[in-house]
Amino acid sequence: MLRRSLRIGAPLLHSLEPVQRAPRLSPSNIDRAIQKFSSQNARCISTSAYRRKAEAGNSTTGSRGAVDPDELSHFNALASTWWDAQGPSRLLHLMNPMRINFAKHCLQMHPTSATADAGGGESPFSKGLRVLDVGCGGGIFSESIARLPETSHVVGLDPSEQILAVARAHAKKDPTLTGKLQYINSTIDDYPSDHQVDLLTLFEVVEHVPYPAAFLQSCMRHVRPGGWIVLSTIARTWSSWFTTKLVAEDLLRIVPRGTHDWHKYINENEMRAFFEKQPGWGAQGMLSMGCLYVPGFGWKAVKGSEHIGNYFFGVRRDMQ
């Protein structure tokens, strides 16, 4: 099922618009974004520790504002219900097995070098898979990938301290996660990259980021040669507006209102075009898989739906 619905090595798509927000990365824009970011943070998060952090961010953060303050406050409001099985994050929880399947599938396609070194072990993961989960939120994916026996270490990264508090509190409920899973309150720009990882994941993140191109480039630095970026997001189509905005948020209310900004969605071909232009990326593996949520049946992988709505995307950093 999974294999059938994967588009592996699709032909290069020409005449693609470049990822749209890249041109907006002029210095003045960045400054404005960062200013907006820190001032709104000061308002919506009362802990002084975080304010210090935000202020520090203002002066020292590198060139990229990877966090949208409106998004931050939206997700802060969701923090307390993140792990509620019947709560607003239910759809994310239901999607999680598919995330694991897709990530496993990517790693299986091209085993990371560590596996190859180990003499072609049967496990799709290397002996110790290192994972960086960017925008981990309450830790739905971070916890589950950390529980897999193949994983050695997981770092969950999120700009919201409030949500990370939820993630940390929830991880305490499972003794097997101790020492394996670590949450760090940081943006990807501020995160020091002393260790490159085998798998960097961005699940439902890029559609919430103001400057996705810069953001993705920041992420790419943290992946080692042969490692993967695996992400999921939503294509910008009339049907995704209809399903994610109108039906899911406004009519059925199965997703909290204001979760999505349709204009920030990135299409699969745009994502593909972006990575095709990145030197050292995607030559040894680039794939996508569309999926649909069918009420009453859950998430289903559907061939071709990567151009319609939710899709997974995996891209491998070339081995030298």
Partner: peptide, 14 residues
């Protein structure tokens, strides 16, 4: 088994 394969807590309602 399905939950374990996907890294879920075996006690989780999911």
């Amino acid at each position: 088994a399905e939950g374990i394969r996907h890294g879920q807590d075996v006690g989780s309602s999911f």
